[in-house]
């Protein structure tokens, strides 16, 4: 990954104003900005790595953790906020033990907060693996996560069975 970024940096000019486009390209390719990647960019542009980090954390679009296998996006736009989108986000956070913008240590889930997904009539909304979940409630949060648990258990069982039959 770092080698790839190194090669990418060779093609971009060493100018301060290129910082954000470079970060965007790295995130596009690798889905997130790792500390080492930010250090490489700082070295390339001749600015301190703290400065790169400061700029990157200012913008919502950059993420600092690799996305999980299942991506959960909780809408906190106006309509969702009014009907308790923050409660839904907090529910996901508590159940998974991570904060928004983070990924669980097993890389299964990541939570993100988004501003609006464009279906305010269904508020509060969460987008789980690109499927819009309408009218969210704490019980639905539990249901979704339970569904993933069952799916994972079934997959493991099938895997074991297929290994046993071989």
């Amino acid at each position: 990954m770092l080698k790839d970024i190194d090669e990418m940096l060779l093609t971009s000019e060493k100018k301060r104003e290129n910082l954000i486009p470079i970060l965007q390209r790295i995130q596009q390719r690798h889905a997130y900005l790792s500390p080492d990647a930010m250090k490489l960019v700082a070295l390339h542009l001749g600015i301190s790595s703290s400065e790169v980090y400061g700029v990157a954390t200012f913008y919502n679009q950059f993420r600092f953790h690799p996305p999980g296998k299942h991506q959960i996006k909780v809408c906190l736009g106006t309509a969702c906020h009014v009907v308790g989108g923050d409660i839904i986000l907090e529910n996901f956070e508590r159940k998974l033990g991570i904060k928004d913008g983070e990924t669980t240590p097993d890389r299964e889930f990541s939570i993100e907060r988004v501003a609006c997904v464009g279906c305010c009539a269904l508020a509060p909304v969460a987008v789980v693996d690109d499927v819009v979940q309408a009218c969210m409630a704490p019980s639905k949060v539990e249901g979704i996560l339970l569904g993933f648990d069952i799916e994972r258990e079934r997959d493991e069982r099938e895997k074991q069975e297929s290994e046993a039959s071989q």
Binding site: P35, M38, I47, S48, S49, S50, E51, V52, Y53, G54, T57, F58
Partner: peptide, 20 residues
């Protein structure tokens, strides 16, 4: 010559931090 400290995040969440 360059700053090791920086502001990170924004709004109420702004903090002074050091990346290294």
């Amino acid at each position: 010559d360059f700053s090791l400290l920086t502001f990170a995040k924004r709004g109420f969440n702004t903090v002074v931090t050091c990346f290294e």
